[in-house]
């Protein structure tokens, strides 16, 4: 990084980082998180001139001497082995293009498709507009990704409904909130699969799907209460 030339340093009192970074505090881009050395820079943090700098608006997490920021809002970026729900957006003779909610469509090659498709008949196996449960196989540096349907439980989704939830709720429900998810499944009598791209597949009776949807809605509203340690 280049050294910084300051316009009028006497006018700009620096941010008070005397107390050092604190866990769970909300930080904003450009915020000074103290000298590097004591901590390492994780997601959302960069080091400039031996100083840790926040680059995102979110909650600061300190774990194993690494500073990471859990952003308040974020776009989904695929990582290898992520379980995702995608929509078929287009196809060629041997490739499907899948919208996985990321900036770029993923590619599903015919060889990784759900069943034997023959060259030129991809649409008969997976038609445009259909939904699939798939796994991210590889992600290129430029963010284009390849998904696969070869694997346990990966399939075409024919029934039920796909809803979108907050990415934070995804990490909460697959972490500390696992019991909550089990409870939701029991209450609604539905099969619920939470994919890493923030899409949720709920399958069962219509009344159950509605029940689950309402529970997700309440959970989104109460999510910040959970974060603050409150009971829901």
């Amino acid at each position: 990084m280049k050294s910084r030339l300051v316009a009028r340093p006497d006018n700009m009192s620096g941010n008070s980082s005397a107390d050092g970074p604190q866990d769970s505090q909300i930080v904003v881009p450009g915020e000074n998180l103290g000298k590097s050395g004591e901590y390492e820079a994780g997601h959302g943090v960069v080091i400039t001139n031996d100083t840790l700098l926040a680059t995102k608006n979110g909650k600061l997490i300190i774990k194993n001497n690494v500073l990471t920021i859990e952003p308040i809002h974020t776009t989904y970026f695929p990582r290898p082995s992520d379980l995702v729900i995608g929509y078929v957006e287009g196809c060629t003779n041997n490739i499907w293009f899948i919208d996985i909610g990321a900036p770029f469509n993923a590619i599903l090659p015919m060889s990784l498709g759900p069943s034997k498709a023959s060259f030129g008949s991809t649409r008969q196996v997976l038609d445009i507009g259909e939904s699939i449960l798939c796994r991210v196989q590889e992600v290129e540096e430029t963010h284009s990704s390849v998904v696969t349907m070869k694997g346990m439980g990966l399939r075409k989704i024919n029934t039920g409904s796909v809803d979108e939830i907050d990415p934070h709720l995804v990490s909460y429900l697959s972490g500390n909130g696992k019991d909550l998810l089990r409870e939701m499944k029991e209450n609604s009598d539905c099969r619920i699969i939470i994919a890493d791209n923030g899409r949720v597949w709920v399958d069962g009776e219509v009344s159950g799907i509605i029940n689950a949807r309402n529970q997700f809605k309440d959970l989104t509203q109460n999510y910040r209460l959970i974060e603050d340690g409150g009971n829901i």
Binding site: V28, P29, G30, G44, T48, T55, K56, N57, I72, H73
Partner: peptide
């Protein structure tokens, strides 16, 4: 615009 970019979770070195 810089506040909105921060709100969208776009990484920035400063606002």
């Amino acid at each position: 615009a810089s506040v909105a970019l921060a709100d969208a979770g776009i990484p920035m070195t400063d606002m």
